[in-house]
Design a protein around this nucleic acid. Structure first.
Lengths: 195, 195
DNA sequence: CGGATCGTTGATCAACTTCAACGGTCGTGG
DNA sequence: CCACGACCGTTGAAGTTGATCAACGATCCG
């Protein structure tokens, strides 16, 4: 479990064995079943979670009871409700497991303590957030610029393997489209493919 | 100029006088006229810029020649094309000044050097990016969840002062709506207001 | 003054949603 | 181990939101 975490961190910064020991001491492990909640709207997000294995989603539910998925997180991704985690406010987001999942988690207090004790983790998280920011920018622009089909194709191109793991109606929710729309897009693509 | 920058940094982390001297030595100043480009698509984004005074926008231009604004940055905001700045790739974004603007800028190399020489800046940027991430999440969800009118009202509520500084068609571009739509929304709101 | 820019309004149009019905598959409890 | 229900994807028809196209008036600025 910790191997996956250390491997991920070491893609961005160097860690000494001592660093690793320190880091490990701040984290705890947790397993989730399929459909199990990690966080529910209105609760306080106590932990920042790294996915060692499995797949989760974060989403909001609107007045009409519809889901809106903001993020999928699989192996090597972090997930939390940032506003809630950082400021210990009520969470706006729900997070649950799409597959059986194994997490490596750190509490709010330990997150602060970790970055103080192992300052290079400030750097790691900065690099992590930088990348994440750039991705979110692209996604927002894409959501304004592109048609439904273009958005679907862009996702399929960016994360081809993940489409096979995620039910189609969840993809729809992630892209901000109706499930029927995805179905029709796929049909239309398949027909054109056949030429 | 540097006062604004230091004030902003010190909202998040503490700086010694020595830190300030070090920080200042890495930054340079620049003025932009109205409509002047800070960055054009295809160029390399050499600097990360802090707005000391004025107002800018970052935007993409699609195949049909339409603008899509991803961000407004006024006093106290940072702006750049992150992908381009970090990896020195060709910029996807354009950035230009909506008002006369004064910037405090740091180059890519100096950004790296700064975070190494003044490690607390890693922390500052991490905190900055954290907040930014949370904001972008909310914006993306909002763009999927809400109607045109709701998006407009949400923006008006979040940044009431800024609506007076930004031409209406740029607001439209930021929200991913046609200029005519904003016009009609405002009319409709005004009519209802009159009741 | 003349051109560019900006907001407004009306008419039409297209993309996507909504609603409804159906068939297949999966998983769980009897 | 089978049967039932929940869940999921598909398809068709109708409805709605917001985009597009076009024209016009106002303002700003060189």
């Amino acid at each position: 479990m910790f191997d996956v975490l250390f491997a991920h961190i070491q893609e961005k910064v160097d860690l000494t064995e001592l660093d690793k020991e320190s880091i490990q001491s701040f984290f705890s492990l947790r397993k989730l079943r399929k459909r199990q909640y990690l966080l529910q709207q209105g609760a306080i997000c106590t932990h920042l979670s790294f996915v060692a294995k499995g797949l989760l989603r974060s989403f909001t539910v609107d007045e009409k009871g519809r889901d809106h998925i903001s993020l999928f997180a699989w192996e090597g991704w972090w997930i939390s409700d940032f506003n809630s985690f950082l400021f210990q406010e009520e969470a706006q987001l729900n997070i649950d497991a799409i597959e059986e999942t194994q997490l490596v988690m750190i509490s709010r207090a330990d997150y602060e303590a970790l970055t103080l004790k192992v300052p290079i983790m400030d750097r790691y998280f900065r690099l992590l957030y930088q990348n994440s920011l750039a991705t979110k920018d692209r996604r927002l622009i894409s959501s304004h610029t592109h048609t439904a089909e273009e958005k679907y194709l862009q996702l399929a191109h960016s994360y081809p393997h993940i489409l096979q793991r995620i039910p189609q109606h969840l993809i729809a929710s992630y892209l901000g489209l109706a499930p029927e729309t995805i179905s029709r897009i796929r049909k239309s693509l398949a027909l054109r493919q056949a030429d």
